[in-house]
Simulated scan of single mutants.
Amino acid sequence: MNTPRLLDMMGQLIALPSVSATSERWDMGNRKVIEQLANWLEPLGFKVRIMPLANPDKANLIATYGSGEGGLVLAGHTDTVPYDEAKWQSDPFTLSERDNRYYGLGSADMKGFFALVIEALKPMLEQNFKSPLIILATADEESSMDGARALVKADLSGARYAIVGEPTGLRPIRAHKGMMMEGITITGRSGHSSNPALGNNALEAMHEVMGALMTLRGQLQQQYHHPGFAVPGPSMNFGCIHGGDNPNRICGQCELHFDIRPVPGMEVAATRERLQQLLTPIAERRKINIGLRELMPGIEAYEQAANSELVQMVEQLTGLGAETVGFATEASFFQKLGMQTIVMGPGHIDQAHQPDEYLGADQITDGITLLQQLIAKVCLHQNKA
């Protein structure tokens, strides 16, 4: 089986819907994308493994070429965000070229990355690989990150370095903030508003909770500071609130959704424990039920040391200093598996998650060149920075 041309690969991947979302109305599987990648990589000599997740329509792909130690992982996710077709100038599931830009859902974020990886490695496979090359494709990065969470160290045996090919304009990123999405539900007791003693007002309790959260936000920002970020401390955003049903009824229930963006060094579990410690005395004093729950599993902040081998290597290859970003990726999961990790890929994040997403032609040619340099340096020559 001959591997398709680059643009044909991009077009075929984009034509396979793989939306991942917390809403059941939008959520779908990525299995067809995984199987398509496997069908291209196996004939090239890759040892291919498809790892099903709890949902049988969702899976990871681990494709390995060569063996040994000190290898390279090229990692990305195969799912996309939901889309608003009416706002697109062309079919989101058809690769369309306009003005040296290739439009389609997932073109930059990040199905296009896999097409570039395969195109880059094809002419190199006849050479002697001294270290393994591993192509990793995951599920559900855009929602739960369950694909990355399912990985264990043995899945990526022999790998020393990982490149997460998120759209960064081919600039190396060595740190990003984490993400926590939390919900607080307060259940009080409704009653006639003419007599406050008839109930226990959940809205009034939430008012106190929000004040305590803002105090905690200030404490966290004093405790944790990372000068590498445009917003150097952790943020806490109150996103939405719902409560009560009528002006003349004591509010019986109120719910708040908020997010926290931890900086490196600020652990998700410890932060959740501080949230619970804040809520418990309020609940006891007001004799009201206050529940804290994760709206999605937390994502740890990520940072790769500036003087690490991989950072120095990619800085040398790109001629660019490694930077930081505010958005979260799967990088922290790969780092926990023992790999030096960098986020770097074709396309730009400001094209992602919006209508008319595209990958520029310059990013394609430059991306292929950079990928070939990385593969040669790590897998063929085993050179260090």
Score class of each variant (00 low, 15 high):
residue 209 V to I: 13
residue 258 F to H: 12
residue 244 G to W: 03
residue 268 V to P: 11
residue 238 F to M: 12
residue 238 F to G: 02
residue 240 C to P: 00
residue 265 G to K: 05
residue 268 V to H: 09
residue 218 G to E: 12
residue 263 V to Q: 07
residue 257 H to T: 10
residue 234 P to A: 01
residue 226 H to M: 03
residue 247 P to K: 01
residue 262 P to D: 08
residue 224 Y to F: 14
residue 234 P to F: 03
residue 261 R to Y: 03
residue 233 G to Y: 10
residue 237 N to K: 12
residue 238 F to R: 10
residue 259 D to K: 10
residue 258 F to A: 04
residue 220 L to S: 11
residue 216 L to W: 08
residue 208 E to C: 07
residue 242 H to E: 14
residue 213 L to V: 03
residue 233 G to H: 15
residue 206 M to R: 11
residue 215 T to Q: 15
residue 246 N to R: 01
residue 228 G to A: 09
residue 233 G to V: 00
residue 257 H to I: 05
residue 252 G to V: 02
residue 249 R to G: 00
residue 233 G to M: 00
residue 213 L to E: 06
residue 248 N to H: 14
residue 267 E to Q: 13
residue 219 Q to I: 05
residue 259 D to A: 00
residue 269 A to K: 09
residue 260 I to F: 10
residue 228 G to W: 02
residue 209 V to H: 10
residue 216 L to Q: 14
residue 247 P to R: 09
residue 222 Q to W: 09
residue 218 G to N: 14
residue 266 M to D: 07
residue 266 M to Q: 12
residue 230 A to E: 15
residue 209 V to P: 03
residue 243 G to N: 11
residue 206 M to C: 08
residue 226 H to W: 07
residue 226 H to K: 06
residue 234 P to D: 06
residue 227 P to T: 01
residue 222 Q to I: 04
residue 225 H to R: 14
residue 205 A to I: 04
residue 220 L to Q: 10
residue 256 L to Y: 07
residue 218 G to P: 08
residue 269 A to F: 01
residue 204 E to C: 12
residue 228 G to H: 00
residue 209 V to G: 06
residue 245 D to Q: 12
